[in-house]
Design a protein around this nucleic acid. Sequence first.
DNA 1: CTGGATCCTATCTGATACTG
DNA 2: CAGTATCAGATAGGATCCAG
Lengths: 157, 157
Amino acid sequence: MDDLVTHTEPQPAATPGTPSWAPQHDPKEPETFAECTRAMVPVHEVLAQISGKWTILVVQALSAGPQRFSEIKRRIDGVSQKMLTATLRDLEKDGFVSRTVTPSIPPRVDYALTEMGRELQEPLKVIGNWAHANRHRVEEARERFAEREEEAKRLAW
Amino acid sequence: MDDLVTHTEPQPAATPGTPSWAPQHDPKEPETFAECTRAMVPVHEVLAQISGKWTILVVQALSAGPQRFSEIKRRIDGVSQKMLTATLRDLEKDGFVSRTVTPSIPPRVDYALTEMGRELQEPLKVIGNWAHANRHRVEEARERFAEREEEAKRLAW
DNA sequence: CTGGATCCTATCTGATACTG
DNA sequence: CAGTATCAGATAGGATCCAG
């Protein structure tokens, strides 16, 4: 019982070149790892944006069609007005959501996914499905990690 | 020129039911929006994890094969030892990365993607490709947003 | 070599109150 | 109704020093 080694497969030992994933590049133009890292920056920015506490839920809510501020707020349980405003602003800034103001009294503001926002749903669906399908595996992994932690504590005393 | 309306398509008006994306469900078991929202929680947790400042880069680095702590650190420009440790710990906790300790002197610790970690690369690749392919659209959207902001400022004075 | 412990800063989030 | 302002608490990230 070698608990320390979770190693499932030896894997072909580190190849120092370009990682396999992320944007595919022209094989004629080999990239250094540093260049590849730089290429990942926009990827991270998008991920950082969509992983805001409320972003996914807002996109999800808007996937049902254009809605007013209060409709969205009602749909999303627990969101504060401040955070919903901020989230919508960020999504608008990046071009995922459109904001339509009707200067009436009282004012009316409608939000909707833009073409790009709807396109974003596809990759989001992929990772969403993956996360949903694997949530139990992650939970189990966390439990095993917690057990190993307690085990380590007991050994320390 | 109706700048306020970015609306590209009217879209079929909000349908109050289940959003179209996220984990597909059995059509025989219609979910309320609240239930669907709850189903998104694990999705968000995974996204929150992989959107840490260094997580993607670590997974990317490890996609080249098992490596020691210092190798990973060398690959990732600018990461502090503290954050790399924390990121690796979190990835280990969720079962994406395995940690192998060789109690020699000096100690040697190898990290590698687990089977689940390698599976994660696929959805990550999808969203990575999307982000990379659309980075210019996002940039343009941000510029247009900044312009609209300045325009609004000028009108305010 | 690896990584824990501390201290410090920046950002995020939430609750409340106020405005057009 | 929609949104801004403010204040306080929680977290993430980083720098540095110490230890097995």
